[in-house]
Write a protein that binds this DNA or RNA. Structure first.
Lengths: 260, 260
DNA sequence: AAATGCGTTCGGTATTGGTGAACACATTTA
DNA sequence: TAAATGTGTTCACCAATACCGAACGCATTT
C-alpha cells in the first residue's frame, strides 16, 4: 500500500486509506478501521460519513462497504480508451472462433491493465477481470505492448524490474527479454508459454492508431492441455493477427472521422 | 451533482468534486478546473497531485484523467454481490439462447444498478454498461426488484418518486404501479413494453437467496421490431424464468457451502 | 442489572488546506 | 526578436478544519 501521508492533501489520503481497508477486509465497521489504522473513531466516522454521502461507500447495518459507484466511474474510465469501443465485439468474435478466453489490454502509467476480458467456452483459464494489472514481461499482452513502445519508454518501464513474476519459466534478464521483443516486432505477435500461469498459454498482438502510436493489445488465453503444436503456432496466431487488423481498421474509421 | 460541502471532511469532498469535473469534461488541466470550481490553482494542483499519487488520476501532458483504478475497485465492488459470480455465465447462456441482450441488476442503496450486461447478437439494443443505474418503475429489472421487496422498503424507494423517466408509456401514478407489481409477484416475471426506450422491450425475474431475501434480478432486452407476440409472451419469459431458477440453484450451493 | 459491544456527538486545538502572488517554461503573437 | 499569453508549479501566510478524546445513546450479552 502506498504511503498516504506523502501527498499534499492528507485528508484525501486518509479517505483513500479507509477505502483500501474496506476493500482489504471485505467491509468493516468504524471501530475496526480505527483500530487497524490507529486513528480515532470520530475521525474514521467523519470520513465514512463523507464517503457515504458522496456515494462511494454504502452502509448496511454496522458495516460499511465500497459501492458500485466505482464500477460506474470505472466503466467511464475504460471508455476513455478508444481501443475498448473498437475492440469489444472483435474480442467476442475471437473468443467464439478460437474457443479460448480473450481480452484487451492497455498501458496506463507504468502498468498494463486489462480493459476487457471474455471467458471462452473452455472455461479453465485464469479468472482475469477488467481492471486487473498484467505482468509486463511474462504475459503475451505485456510483451506485445513492450515491443511496440519506443526504447526510451521501454527503459522507463523496465527500470528496476526484477523478472520474478509468473511461473519462473520466463526470462531471467533484460537481455533475454530484449532478444524476444525483437522477434515479437518482426512477427507482429507475442506469445507466453506457461510463463504466467502453469498450463496456460497466451498469444497477443499490439494495436496502433492512425498516428502509429500504441493503443493497446488484443490477447488470447488457452490451456496447454490438448493444444496441438500446429494450433498454437499457426491457427490461433492467425486469428489473433486478423482480429488485431480488424480492430486497427475500426480504430482508423473512428479516429479519422468515419469511412474517410 | 451532490453538494460536497455538507459533509464533515471537506477536503475529500473537494477531491471528489475535482474527480467529477474530470469526468464531466473528459479530462482537464489545473487552470480549467480551478476556473470551473472557482478555486485557486494551487489548491486544485495539490488535490490532483494527491489523487495522482494515490493512483486515481493519470496525468498525460497538460491533462489529467481518471484512471482505471476505478475499474479495478469497481470489479471488486461487483464481486461483493454473490449474484455476479452465480449469474454471469447464465447471462451468457441466456443471451445466446434468446438472441437478445441480457444482464444482472441489484439494489444498492436506493438505486437499481446494472452489475453485468452482455450485448446480444441483435446488437440494436441500448448500450447499457456495468455500473449504470436503471430507472425503478419503467424497466423490467426495476419492477422485478420492487415487487420482490417488502412494502416498507418499497415505500422508502418510491417516496417522492415522480414517474417521469423513460418514454412516458409507463405508469403515471403509484397506484397504477402497485397494481402491476401485484401481477409481477404472481407471475414471477416483470416486463417493460417500450416504457424505457422506444422500440425496446424487457423481461426480468427477481432472484432470492436461501433466506428468501432479494439478491437482484436477471433481465433480457430486445427490439420490438420483428418480435412476435408468442415470442414475447411465452418463449422469452420461459427462458428468463429458467435462467433465474438456475441462478437460484447456483446461489443456494454457494450460500449453504456447496452441494449440501 | 451490569457489562460490553457498537456507532455517534461534541468542544478544543494543533494541523493544514486554501489563497494569491511569484515563478519556470512553452507556445503564440506582434 | 521580443513581448504577451498560456500552461503547471512553488511558496509563505492565515483562517479553517481534521483530528483527538471523552461523553453519549443504544443495542446485545453476561
Amino acid at each position: 500500500m502506498v504511503d498516504v501521508s506523502e501527498f499534499p492533501v492528507t485528508a484525501t489520503g486518509t479517505s483513500v486509506q479507509i477505502l483500501e481497508t474496506l476493500i482489504e477486509r471485505n467491509g468493516a465497521g468504524v471501530t475496526e478501521i480505527a483500530d487497524v489504522l490507529d486513528r480515532s473513531k470520530s475521525s474514521v466516522h467523519n470520513h465514512l460519513e463523507t464517503l457515504t454521502g458522496l456515494g462511494f461507500v454504502i452502509k448496511d447495518g454496522y458495516d460499511y462497504r465500497v459501492s458500485l459507484r466505482f464500477l460506474t466511474i470505472g466503466s467511464y474510465a475504460r471508455s476513455q480508451y478508444p481501443l475498448y469501443a473498437a475492440g469489444v465485439s472483435e474480442v467476442a468474435q475471437l473468443s467464439t472462433a478460437s474457443g479460448c478466453s480473450a481480452g484487451l489490454a492497455v498501458l496506463e502509467g507504468d502498468s498494463v491493465v486489462c480493459l476487457h476480458h471474455r471467458l471462452g467456452p473452455d472455461t479453465d483459464t485464469p479468472r482475469v477481470e477488467a481492471g486487473d494489472r498484467l505482468p509486463l514481461d511474462c504475459t503475451a499482452a505485456g510483451k506485445a505492448i513492450l515491443a511496440a513502445l519506443g526504447e526510451a519508454r521501454r527503459d522507463e518501464l523496465l527500470a528496476g524490474h526484477t523478472f520474478d513474476s509468473g511461473t519462473g519459466q520466463s526470462h531471467s534478464s533484460r537481455s533475454e527479454l530484449d532478444a524476444e521483443l525483437g522477434t515479437v516486432r518482426t512477427r507482429g505477435l507475442a506469445v507466453d508459454r506457461e510463463e504466467w500461469y502453469p498450463d496456460q498459454r497466451g498469444i497477443a498482438a499490439a494495436v496502433e492508431g492512425v498516428d502509429g502510436e500504441l493503443r493497446g493489445a488484443i490477447y488470447l488465453l488457452t490451456a496447454t492441455e490438448g493444444l496441438s503444436g500446429k494450433r498454437f503456432q499457426q491457427d490461433l496466431p492467425g486469428l489473433v493477427i486478423s482480429s488485431a487488423n480488424s480492430i486497427r481498421n475500426t480504430l482508423r474509421e473512428s479516429e479519422t472521422g468515419c469511412r474517410e
